[in-house]
């Protein structure tokens, strides 16, 4: 990755002289939260996101990935890829991202598809429809341009095995 980054940096420098982009225009922040129920002053139950200090099996984790354009040029062709964390199961239907098309991989990120198209090999050489437990990666394809100074988020949830 470092080598690739350096190559891009060199490319960016060349392009910079022509008034184009430089490296790492996008700042990426990845956060994990646990949602806890708390009772507020009015005695109502509400949910609060906290840093995952205390996480035990069966807990639900919310991942928020924030991407911000810190450069001075619009960013295009933005694709966020997130492999499912170890010891975690994707929570069905939880992936979300405004202005994105979301697809999933069941083969370690080689190919992606929508939930209804994904298949995995089942018993006796048969294939079966893939379920959330089969997902290995989630991909968000941002359909628009991200203007300089703009930011957006994609999220998904997991359950700790």
């Amino acid at each position: 990755m470092r080598l690739v980054r350096q190559l891009f940096t060199v490319t960016g420098l060349i392009l910079l002289s022509a008034g184009y982009a430089h490296a790492d225009d996008i700042k990426l922040v990845n956060q994990a939260f646990k949602e806890v129920a708390v009772v507020n002053a009015k005695g109502e139950k509400e949910f609060k996101l906290v840093e995952p200090g205390t996480v035990v099996p069966k807990d639900e984790i919310l991942y928020i990935t924030t991407f911000a354009n810190t450069g001075d040029q619009p960013a295009t062709d933005i694709v966020i890829t997130n492999p499912l964390p170890n010891n975690s199961r994707y929570k069905a239907g939880s992936a979300f991202g405004a202005g994105t098309e979301i697809s999933y991989s069941v083969d370690g990120g080689k190919s992606y598809g929508t939930p209804e198209t994904l298949k995995v090999s089942g018993s006796a050489g048969q294939t079966r429809a893939a379920g959330p437990d089969d997902y290995t990666h989630i991909r968000w394809v941002y359909t628009g341009e991200l203007a300089p100074g703009a930011e957006s988020t994609v999220t998904f949830r997991t359950i700790i095995k």
Partner: peptide, 17 residues
């Protein structure tokens, strides 16, 4: 539990990640 998100993008036609 580790999680690494990757963003691929282009600025003025130049890919980066």
């Amino acid at each position: 539990i580790n999680n690494t998100a990757v963003v691929d993008y282009q600025v003025a036609g130049v890919p980066n990640a």
